[in-house]
Design a protein around this nucleic acid. Structure first.
Lengths: 256, 256
DNA sequence: GATATCCGGTTCATTATTTGAACCATTATT
DNA sequence: AATAATGGTTCAAATAATGAACCGGATATC
């Protein structure tokens, strides 16, 4: 791995659950020497990608990241556009709704709305979702470029639960169904007791750039609920796609 | 400069005005060799910090940045908290309102609301503001750590206009006034014909983490307007600080 | 209250990575 | 048809990254 890769993988050790980490911790988890880790942190700090707490001397993600993320957002107002509709969908369904964007080979959770239930599906911002074992992933692949789908089906397909689909053919079928239906369904593919529906959000070229999904405990989900949530998530995804692409319906033919 | 520094400075070439750049362009502007530039871009792309347009082959900032920025935001909900108040202030003043966060040695613009006037002050997201020559910078330094202030006053103090304060003593006085008044005023310090007021947003330890500012064309700004905007921006800053710090008023003594 | 660990941070000879001029293959311009 | 861009690649030479051992200080542990 090159040096920049190492630096970035240091950044990726931070999460919502652990937003601040010490030098030794970072060194241990990354597997890099303490001296190396520190040198990388200093470089990152110098450009505002990392900040160091003056008191605890622990490190956290820096404002430079927010800056670049905002520049990206300005060009590509995915969050701004989508968040209101995520909120709407969350109130309408009273279940967890999460929004993801594709990155490299997985989906990145960029926004979440949780219901007030104590028993709910919890999703963290920044959480990474595999393509083959989540409703979001299936919905995404149903409208992704062939190469992306091929890469996913070729790669290792982990079975997270007894229900996870690991046969390329089965996954492919699941994608076809999602395309016809307008939304994907994933029954406990990533975790026992969780059932999700998702729909793809499309760019102007008709390919998916992300997804919106509703995730709920299976215990309080009847067949009718799935259909209802599916239609709602589909409508939300379409609305977001249209707002992003200037109501250019013609381009959305693939989804219809 | 180390390799990670180079990689990051590549990222910093992207802006709201130029969100997509080609390989040669990046190589030219960064001063790095084309081969080096590309190797860095490949490394960045591999971690989702950069994406390449399939058609134009141009590069743009990637989703990985959004992910990390959101993780940061989750711990430190500066934007979420502040944006509604920025909006309010923008409608109340009918002028440009911008929100900044401190990074390394300058303020980073993280949110902007523009009025509907054709003649308005334009500020871009991601724009960097020097500390000594902006209302935001003065407001920030009025509540910054001594080391930050010292570093700023020691460094080169560019005169952007004939009105820019470049004497450390004058800048220091300006900070004192801002502290007493509750908001800073900067009269054409960065650009001719622009007058701004700003107030610091404080963390729980009483130090500034960012600022909120109102910027307007001097042509339509009377003395009374300045006072009015100043009080409004001060109130907004205080409200944001309180919401961030859980209404812990005691800690805000420094500002009062 | 002394001992042993942890911590963040630093050093410098060894080692591995980064570098860049010259090189393609394509795609606009002229 | 020629020219000059573009994105992308190669490999010996130059440079930067590495990590074991080190320091001083703060916390546990006995």
């Amino acid at each position: 791995m090159g040096t920049v890769g190492k630096a970035i993988s240091l950044l990726e050790l931070f999460s919502v659950a652990e937003p601040e980490l010490g030098l030794s911790d970072l060194s241990r988890r990354s597997g890099f020497d303490k001296a190396t880790t520190r040198r990388l942190l200093v470089a990152l700090t110098g450009h505002g990608f990392v900040e160091q707490d003056a008191g605890t001397r622990h490190y956290r993600l820096g404002a430079g990241l927010s800056r670049l993320a905002r520049i990206r957002e300005a060009r590509f107002p995915f969050l701004q556009t989508a968040v209101p509709l995520v909120r709407e969908l969350a109130t309408a369904t009273a279940e967890t709704v999460h929004l993801s964007e594709f990155g490299i080979d997985r989906l990145v959770t960029v926004h979440v709305e949780h219901p007030s239930w104590a028993n709910r599906v919890n999703v963290d911002i920044g959480q990474l979702l595999p393509l083959h074992s989540t409703a979001s992933g299936i919905a995404y692949m149903a409208f992704a470029r062939d190469e992306t789908v091929k890469a996913c089906l070729a790669g290792p397909l982990d079975a997270f639960t007894a229900h996870t689909l690991v046969e390329p053919a089965a996954i492919s079928r699941s994608m076809d169904e999602a395309r016809e239906r307008g939304y994907s369904i994933c029954d406990q593919g990533l975790e026992e007791g969780v059932i999700s529906v998702a729909a793809a959000i499309l760019t102007a070229d008709g390919f998916a750039l992300g997804t919106i999904a509703v995730a709920a405990p299976k215990a309080r989900t009847a067949a009718a609920d799935i259909a209802q949530r599916g239609l709602a998530v589909m409508a939300a995804a379409r609305e977001i796609s249209m707002r992003l692409n200037g109501d250019n319906l013609q381009i959305l033919r693939r989804q219809a």
